[in-house]
């Protein structure tokens, strides 16, 4: 299975991993493929309060800039510092070491509306 079943997904090709009242967020394997070689990752400041739909991160390839939107509201408690020097990690291991941020969520219930792996894969094949 390409897409881990323990994650939830969005139609904007992000994955969300629930860890208590926190969620770890990244982009999917499909998304990194579409973006091509990622050369720079701009992450939010720690403690930033994000509403669902706010710009969470900006990913840059050589000739394109793409925003990643917060799939869930909350406070940024951790960012993946390693991407500063090695943005390629997002391409190489999007579901693992290439995570972007950890958010402390106000209402974890927001995650319920997200897709599970099977639904995401179905969405991908229909897109």
């Amino acid at each position: 299975m390409t897409y881990p079943t323990q994650f939830r997904y969005t139609k904007e090709h992000e994955w969300v991993s629930l860890e208590g009242n926190k969620v770890r967020i990244g982009i999917t394997k499909h998304a990194q493929g579409e973006l091509g070689d990622i050369v720079f990752v701009e992450l939010p400041a720690l403690e930033a309060q994000l509403e669902q739909g706010d710009t969470l991160a900006t990913l840059e390839s050589v000739k394109a800039v793409s925003d990643v939107y917060a799939p869930i509201s909350g406070k940024v408690v951790e960012v993946n510092k390693g991407l500063e020097d090695s943005p390629e990690t997002v391409n190489e291991d999007p579901h693992g070491k290439g995570w972007l941020v950890v958010i402390e969520v106000a209402s974890p219930a927001q995650a319920d509306s997200l897709l599970d792996a099977a639904a995401y894969e179905k969405y991908l094949s229909s897109e």
Binding site: V39, F40, E60, S61, V62, K63, A64, V65
Partner: peptide, 12 residues
């Protein structure tokens, strides 16, 4: 570093 520039980032 062209993503800073107008031909890619346009209004931003």
């Amino acid at each position: 570093s062209q993503t800073r520039e107008q031909h890619i980032r346009r209004g931003r």
